[in-house]
Structure formats: structure tokens, C-alpha cells
């Protein structure tokens, strides 16, 4: 049932990558519980603009949980306290009247802050550029069933491919490790015949890039899987370890 709540927002404000940031507190009254979290942010920004203040910068695009653009570390959780959704799918009904909501950007040395809540996730693009693609000629579309792929493998590859690259895994990890992201991107290709050809090179190149960019080391806490909006499993990390180690031992 719709009702209106009053919330206090503690939001991280930072003018630029090298400036010192700090929390600003805003009070927002009469927020509809039916509104989405980002709509609530829009309302706040409208107010800031009308008060001739600088609005809060935050990333968003599709607002339906598929583009991976929204971020925000809300009340101690990436994409907010609700599970298996992105920030844009989070609704104000998850919050109580009078609650204080703390909103921070992703914090990782590899994701420098651009402004306020907006971080540069170009590091993930660089990892993809290092090997997250198929560069061999696989020909035209093959006849149906000419290359049989086990249902289990197809499902597993599809689950890995559900990763939208939002960066919640690295944001949630106490070590700021990007292993779940890299594991998903390696797995979605390594499980299928077209991707298998370059699997060894891909695993080595992507892991090397990930390490170079300053992400931490995975310690198997499982925080990434618990916070992942697409519920990508840490079993993909075991596959990445396997791919990487067998590639290195073959060299």
C-alpha cells in the first residue's frame, strides 16, 4: 500500500577525483514508498537545482536492471539491502519512516571517483579488452545440433553471461577483488566451443590485467556472490582458477 515516508540522507559529496570528499546530510519529506530509489534521488536533485545548489552526480541508464550502469553503496550494501537487484530496481518500500540512509560510491583503488557517487569503472572495460572476446573465425551460423553442447554447460555459460559488469562484486569484497567479474567473463566463453580455443590465453591475459589495475586478491569470502544483483556463483571463480593454473602449468 502506498504511503509517504520522511528520510534523512547521508550522501558522499566529492567535487573531483583528487579533491577531498565528505558526507552531506539532506532531509527529504513525503517520499512515496512506491517510488524507486533513483526516483527519490531525482526528487532530491530537482530540489537542489531549485535551491540553486549543485545536484548530486550518480550513474544510471536503463533503470531496468540490465545495463549495469547504476551503482551506489546503500546502507552498507552495494545496490542496497535488498537481494538480487540493482539500485535502479530498489524501491523506497524497503525503508522505514524516519530512517537514515547512508549513500556512498563504490570504494576501490581501481575505481577512482569521478564526482560524488559516480566512479570510473573503465578498469572493467580494460579487463574485457585484454581478452574477453573471441577473435578466431568461427564461420557462419552452424546448422542446428551440428555442434552439440551439453545442457549443463549451456546453462552454466548462460548463468555466467548474466553478469552486467556493474562492479558490485569488487565493491562488496573486503579485498576489492574483481575475481567474480573476471571469472564470469572467462566462464561464459570457456564453456562453449567457440570460446574454448582461446581459453588459456584469455584466462592469463584477463587475470594479468586485473592484477595490473590494482584489484585485490580473492580470499573466498563469498561476499561478491551474496551481493551480486545477478547472483553469479563463486563456482565460476573455481573454474577461472582451474583455467589459469592449467594454462600456467602448460607453459
Amino acid at each position: 500500500m502506498e504511503k509517504n515516508i520522511n528520510v534523512t540522507l547521508k550522501i558522499w559529496r566529492q567535487v573531483g577525483p583528487n579533491e577531498k570528499g565528505k558526507f552531506e546530510t539532506y532531509k527529504l519529506d513525503n517520499v512515496s514508498t512506491d517510488s524507486s530509489f533513483l526516483e527519490m534521488m531525482d526528487v532530491l536533485n530537482e530540489r537542489l537545482i531549485s535551491e540553486r545548489k549543485v545536484p548530486i552526480a550518480f550513474d544510471h541508464d536503463c533503470r531496468e536492471g540490465i545495463c549495469g550502469m547504476c551503482s551506489l553503496y546503500i546502507n552498507g550494501h552495494p545496490h542496497g539491502p535488498d537481494g538480487e537487484i540493482t539500485t535502479c530496481q530498489l524501491h523506497m518500500r524497503n525503508f522505514k519512516d524516519g530512517q537514515t540512509i547512508v549513500i556512498e560510491p563504490w570504494r576501490s583503488a581501481a575505481f577512482p571517483i569521478i564526482r560524488d557517487l559516480m566512479v570510473d569503472r573503465g578498469a572493467f572495460d580494460k579487463i574485457i579488452q585484454a581478452g574477453g572476446y573471441v577473435s578466431i573465425n568461427t564461420g557462419g551460423v552452424p546448422d542446428a545440433n551440428s555442434i552439440p553442447i551439453a545442457k549443463v554447460d549451456a546453462d552454466e555459460a548462460m548463468d555466467a553471461a548474466s553478469c552486467i559488469g556493474c562492479g558490485a562484486c569488487a565493491a562488496a569484497c573486503k579485498n576489492s577483488s574483481a575475481m567474480l567479474f573476471v571469472a564470469a567473463k572467462v566462464s561464459q566463453l570457456a564453456l562453449l566451443p567457440q570460446g574454448k580455443v582461446e581459453a588459456a590465453h584469455r584466462a592469463k591475459a584477463m587475470v594479468a590485467k586485473m592484477d595490473e589495475l590494482g584489484f585485490g586478491n580473492c580470499t573466498n569470502t563469498g561476499a561478491c556472490e551474496a551481493e551480486c544483483p545477478k547472483n553469479v556463483s563463486i563456482s565460476h571463480i573455481a573454474r577461472l582458477n582451474r583455467e589459469f593454473l592449467s594454462a600456467k602449468f602448460k607453459d
Binding site: S108, A109, F111, S177, F215
Partner: peptide, 8 residues
């Protein structure tokens, strides 16, 4: 390394 990866 892991502590440093979080950033300042």
C-alpha cells in the same frame, strides 16, 4: 595488498 586495493 588487499588493504591497499580498497583505496584511501
Amino acid at each position: 595488498q588487499n588493504m591497499r586495493a580498497r583505496g584511501a
